[in-house]
Amino acid sequence: MAGQSDPHLSVFSPPEVEFLAEDEKVEIIPKFSLGSLHMICGDFGPFRPNIASEVPLWLAVALKERGKCDIRAPDWMSVDKLMQILEAERESPREFQPLPFHYIEISKLLFKHAHDNIQDIYMVSIKCTNASCTAIYISLFSLSVMIIQVRSLIEDIRDVRFHKVETGLQMISGRTHAVKALQKKVTFPT
């Protein structure tokens, strides 16, 4: 089957990792009304317009593609948060900062399917700081700059972490039986 990785390497192929990431929960703002869904993977809903609800990412993307909801980008996907994380990652060579386990895949999926919603969180934050409605007129240009910023921040964090993992693995090769890969919990507190 497509997406099935080589079994002898016992690694997960990118589509498989994406599949796993799609089970992570995100918040959506429904634009429709619907009773609870009783799925094999759990019960979700009921959905009421403008009342936030938590669903797995795949469901959020499916609804989003049909124009049925907005996805609320997770808190950690803001420029401020990511900058903090990146800085902390660079400062502590042996520790990892708390981020969702599938942060790369989640951000990729959100960029692909809900980039307009990622813009939303900036709209809101700018609105708050200016305390006026001028934010609505903010140019599309600066919005896309922010999107690029988030994207490159996530890439930077990834690079720093990969480098850490690489050096960590070099250290242990042949020496020890085990190594602690992550000092901190990878689950992100909501």
């Binding site: 089957m1 099935q4 079994p7 498989e16 599949f19 799925m39 094999i40 499916a62 049925k68």
Partner: peptide, 29 residues
Amino acid sequence: NDLVVSLYQMDLDRTLFLLRSYLRIRLQK
């Protein structure tokens, strides 16, 4: 409701994929 049906269908497909992958990886081993 078409929407609901398609959502359930997606859920179904995902579960089927999981189950098949599980059985398949065992067969490969």
